[in-house]
Design a protein around this nucleic acid. Structure first.
Length: 444
DNA sequence: AATGGAACATGCGATGACTT
DNA sequence: AAGTCATCGCATGTTCCATT
């Protein structure tokens, strides 16, 4: 198996178990052990699966005084420091070993250092060195070089963890893989507890990252906490940044359920961080991306909840500006193109999904179309009875081109809904802000 | 009043892309 | 790996209207 596939799979095994969380929220039975939350002040629900990590339920909506912290190279570091290797976990030579895997109780060899930790040692040292060199260097080009090297090493390390989970890999052993996950859960759990002891509230957490909140928190307090956590767990804990504010978003299908991979926020230095929303997706047209990002920028200047909420109408004005431009046709076609990667040959599509229609058009025009390729298309008339008239492939567009303004308008509104539904702005309310405004007439 | 059909709405499983 | 979300297309339900 190629390295990158193993790396992906290893991340996948963690993510997959995390995502089951939402299924659990929906009362679907899954083979999980659920931890009793009685030992926590804030009563989060913590979930465990054999190969999975912890998550802490994101607390819906707007937060201030939130700091994001994460462990660097958590999994390789655990493999190194806990001496986890195919031949050390459940070794035959020391069944009575004092070193035990949390939750599972597996014994770990006390006599030998495992081959995997031995190997990781140098890689980890090199990566940490490059990271510290990065911070010390002022030369931009050199810094970039260090950055590339440390991130290359990161992937090698991740891959080592991935391979540990494969029976067929030379140094693979499922029990060792599970042991790493158990240590990781233990580490995050302990860190969260420590955070609470330090007066923080955990507002979100996932595998190796925690979002912790405390009113008027100082950099000093955070640094102290990180140092203490690092030594407690034996893995360095870094500050990703302090948020000016952050918003955790709900599921669109179950509006009362928070989802763990959709949020947006602004760091103190003005940097925007967002996950899962339209502006982050590669299949969103530029226009919608720009509109959503610009809305967040309007909000980014807010330094209080009241200020934030007051700015929402202004953000919707921005959206309105985009809608007006759209309806005037005052935009380039480029901004409206949707990009999708084909997963199969055009003729293998069972449904007339947009990307399949566009691909077939290209095929008919003599273009080479193959799976894995990205097709770009303009939405011409989304609801047209004939699928072929619904979209037009980018390559086949000519000078004057009609497009489905209503459809794009809906997409704009939905981008707004994503951001503001937690604040009571549903699609129709946003529509009334953006589309009608003062244009509504009164009959006398 | 009953029937039938067109147009439209709603629900649902399948499909597909993207995300972490 | 398995989640979210959007979409498709079919089945079914609803409404309206003309016809019987």
């Amino acid at each position: 198996m190629p390295l990158h596939r193993a790396a992906r799979a290893s991340i996948g095994s963690i993510m997959s178990s995390l995502q089951l969380y939402t299924a659990w929220k929906d009362d679907i039975l899954i083979p999980w052990k659920k931890r009793e939350p009685e030992s926590f002040k804030t009563g989060w629900e913590l979930l465990v699966a054999d190969r999975g990590g912890f998550i802490f339920e994101p607390k819906l909506g707007f937060h201030m005084d939130v700091v994001e912290v994460d462990f660097t190279s958590m999994f390789p570091m655990l493999m190194l420091t806990r001496n986890i290797s195919a031949e050390t976990v459940l070794c035959k030579c020391c069944p009575d070993s004092k070193i035990r895997v949390p939750e599972l109780g597996y014994n770990i060899c006390e006599k030998r250092k495992g081959i995997v930790p031995k190997t990781l040692d140098l890689l980890l040292k090199k990566r940490l060195k490059y990271k510290s060199l990065m911070k010390e260097t002022s030369d931009v080009r050199l810094r970039q070089a260090y950055d590339l090297r440390q991130s290359a090493l990161k992937w090698i390390l991740v891959t080592c963890f991935g391979y540990l989970g494969y029976r067929n890999a030379r140094f693979g052993k499922v029990d060792a893989h599970i042991a790493v996950c158990a240590f990781a859960r233990d580490a995050l759990l302990k860190t969260a507890r420590l955070a609470e002891e330090h007066g923080f509230e955990v507002v979100h957490g996932i595998v190796d990252s925690l979002w912790i909140k405390k009113a008027g928190v100082t950099p000093r307090e955070v640094a102290d906490f990180c140092r203490e956590a690092s030594s407690l767990v034996g893995v360095p804990l870094n500050v990703e940044g302090k948020y000016r504010w952050i918003v955790f978003l709900p599921s669109k299908i179950l509006p009362e359920v928070p989802v763990l991979n959709r949020y947006y926020g602004v760091f103190e230095d003005g940097r925007i961080k967002m996950r899962g929303i339209e502006a982050r997706r590669t299949d969103t047209p530029e226009l919608i991306k720009k509109a959503q990002l610009e809305m967040i920028k309007v909000l980014s200047g807010a330094f209080s909840y009241e200020d934030f909420v007051k700015r929402i109408p202004a953000a919707l004005q921005v959206l309105r500006g985009y809608a007006e431009k759209l309806l005037r046709g005052d935009i380039s076609v480029e901004e409206l193109l949707v990009s999708k990667r084909l997963s199969k040959h055009p003729q293998d599509y069972a449904h007339d999904v947009f990307q399949a229609v566009a691909a077939k058009q290209l095929l008919a025009a003599g273009f080479d179309v193959y799976p894995g390729q990205t097709v770009r298309y303009l939405i011409v008339d989304a609801d047209n009875r004939s699928p072929n008239n619904r979209v037009k492939a980018a390559e086949l567009l000519n000078g004057r081109q009609r497009f489905d303004a209503q459809k794009y308008l809906e997409m704009l509104l939905e981008a707004g809904e994503t951001l503001f539904s937690v604040f009571g702005y549903d699609l129709e309310r946003i529509r009334s802000h953006v589309v009608y405004g003062e244009k509504q007439l009164v009959l006398g």
